[in-house]
């Protein structure tokens, strides 16, 4: 049947078209090399993808990255000829995947998608970011992300980031709303692991994320840094052994509850100059049931009267069960 099918011109054309279509969109074997470019139609990446400059997914187009794909970014010259945009306010010095359309990067537990540096000896910020700007319905799931500057970065964009691992980046995730873009930032950060980054999650101006069930462990400067954020919920996370657990600046409607916030090196929570509003952080585990020990790792009005107070009362007497990445996942 199959052989006889080749004799049928319609089937032959169909097969030929399928092959052409497939190869125009992705790469089965070897390596797909992507120079500085714009993607204007739906595209699929799989296998090994070497990115050698900014790649912009234009509005109306979707980039799908298949499970098991490795996307490696070359360390290009800072704001050099391989960049598509020299707008330093919204872009990073080195190569980015700029999402104006949509990104679906959905790996599987046993076939994660890797975003990393292409360097033999990689270092932090070899590449810039998967930079979502004014785009929505994006998903990053089961991805391993390393050596980026701020590898998941959202300006007035909507993204779900789940079951990903971030390590050896500058700041793992950063987001804020920007003027002139109608879409508001909505980011769900769920079931991820953040370790050995400069900072974990940077919650910026006016954004209202959900940050839950993450392991935020051993990041050099901070676990979570919220500044001028909107209403946001930080619940059921393990925030431990970071330089500072949570840093807050000019934040109002923040819910910090049911987390394990313990053993951070400088402070579990530190209010920055300008955080005059009190902070409700009841119902967390602080690594101790001794209020004086808990207090020692909180910087607030008790240390500096110009700061607000952190209400850490009603703390739980043992680690919050079910916080962090659930084992059943």
């Amino acid at each position: 049947m199959f052989i006889s099918g080749w004799k049928n011109p319609i089937i032959t054309i169909l097969i030929f078209s399928l092959i052409v279509l497939t190869f125009s969109a992705c790469c089965f074997a070897g390596q797909l090399v992507v120079d500085r470019t714009e993607i204007g139609k739906d595209t699929v990446w799989q296998g090994h993808v070497l990115v050698k400059g900014d790649v912009r997914v234009k509005k109306g187009a979707t980039l799908i990255i298949m499970p098991g794909t490795t996307v490696a970014f070359e360390k290009i010259k800072k704001f050099g000829p391989e960049k598509l945009s020299l707008d330093k306010k919204n872009h990073f010095p080195r190569a980015e995947l700029i999402i104006r359309g949509r990104l679906l990067a959905q790996g599987l537990p046993d076939k994660v998608i890797v975003f990393t540096s292409a360097e033999k000896n990689p270092s932090v910020a070899d590449w810039g970011a998967v930079n979502f700007i004014g785009s929505k319905d994006n998903i990053m799931e089961y991805c391993d992300i390393s050596y980026g500057h701020t590898p998941v970065h959202c300006h007035s964009a909507q993204v779900t980031v789940t079951h990903c691992t971030f390590h050896d980046n500058g700041v793992a995730i950063g987001f804020k709303n920007i003027k002139g873009v109608e879409l508001k930032c909505v980011v769900s950060v769920l079931y991820n692991k953040f370790w050995n980054n400069g900072g974990g999650i940077l919650i910026g101006g006016g954004t209202s994320p959900v940050v839950s069930h993450n392991d935020i462990i051993g990041n050099k400067f901070f676990g979570i840094f919220a500044k001028k954020s909107g209403v946001c919920a930080i619940r059921f996370n393990n925030i431990v052994r970071n330089g500072k657990g949570i840093i807050l600046y000019s934040v109002r409607d923040l819910i910090i509850r049911d987390n394990n916030i313990a053993n951070n090196l400088d402070y579990n929570i530190s209010l920055l100059e300008g955080q005059e509003q009190d902070v409700d952080a009841q119902g967390n585990w602080w690594g101790s049931i001794d209020p004086s020990k808990i207090r020692r790792l909180i910087r607030d009005a008790a240390s500096d009267q110009s700061l607000g107070k952190v209400d850490f009362t009603n703390f739980v007497s043992a680690p919050v069960p079910g916080a962090g990445i659930l084992l059943s996942d």
């Binding site: 330093k88 306010k89 872009h91 932090v124 910020a125 810039g128 500058g170 700041v171 400069g198």
Partner: peptide, 17 residues
Amino acid sequence: AVLLVFLGSISTSAYCC
């Protein structure tokens, strides 16, 4: 003082975030 050390990027011009 902070992240730029980690980022290995010393510059007086700010960029993205």
